[in-house]
């Protein structure tokens, strides 16, 4: 849920990066963290990782400038993707305002992507929301793997699997190196802030 602080003129929104385990959610946040200046980013919190797996969530607070005189404060969260952390994913989605669904291009992960998006839709519904109505963008990550011999899915195939219902913008990305990371962040931030601001500030 967004928080609008009229006294301090701040809008706080929560954006969650969702997707199957190992698709690159934490890598997106790390790239953003390393690329932003100290003034625009808070501390990155990573809750305990066993090996390199997110067990609870990651959190990265950002300042993204102003809209209509309000400072925009965004909190980026990731969820643990592994199937067994269902309960944790639901907790992290509490009060979410915008979503990035990160897809893995490996052919062997095709089913996992589809299941994870379905899991997202259900968990959002359990919070009384409809994914179709929410700010959402897709990210087709790890595009660098498509130039290697490993079998991967084309963007068309991923669109077919994941974006038929939602018809939202999709961004190709290589989260380890940066391409697509800020394009994804910019689009979801814009959509989320507009969504919140339209609800409360302009439509009165």
């Amino acid at each position: 849920m967004a928080l609008i602080d009229l006294g301090r003129k701040e809008i706080h929104c929560k954006i969650v990066y969702y997707g199957a385990g190992r698709c690159g959610k934490t890598t997106n946040l790390l790239y953003i963290y390393n690329a932003m200046s100290d003034n625009d980013r808070g501390k990155m919190l990573t809750i305990d990782t066993k090996g390199d797996r997110t067990l609870f969530f990651d959190l990265l607070p950002l300042n993204l400038g102003k809209i209509s005189g309000f400072d925009i404060r965004i909190q980026l969260y990731t969820v643990p993707g592994q199937v067994m952390y269902e309960a944790t994913r639901k907790l992290v989605l509490k009060g979410v305002d915008g979503l990035v669904f990160v897809a893995d291009p490996l052919k062997v992960r095709q089913e996992r992507n589809i299941e994870s998006l379905d899991d997202l839709r259900r968990n959002i519904a359990d919070h009384g929301l409809d994914l179709k109505e929410m700010p959402l963008v897709l990210q087709y990550n790890k595009r660098d793997l498509c130039d290697t011999p490993v079998p991967t899915l084309s963007v068309e195939e991923l669109e077919q699997d994941l974006n038929q219902v939602y018809q939202v913008p999709g961004f190709e990305a290589i989260a380890t190196k940066g391409p697509g990371v800020f394009e994804t962040l910019k689009e979801i931030s814009k959509r989320t802030v507009n969504y919140v601001a339209n609800k409360h500030l302009f439509n009165k």
């Binding site: 808070g42 501390k43 919190l45 969530f57 959190l59 909190q75 992290v92």
Partner: peptide, 29 residues
């Protein structure tokens, strides 16, 4: 704080040494 981890009000000593945003997110979770 609220259930999403937002800080609604903050009183007393400033957060020297206490990272309020992380504390709020973890508390909510």
């Amino acid at each position: 704080i609220d259930g999403a981890g937002n800080i609604l009000a903050h009183c007393g000593q400033d957060t020297d040494g206490v990272d309020a945003l992380s504390l709020a997110a973890l508390t909510a979770a």
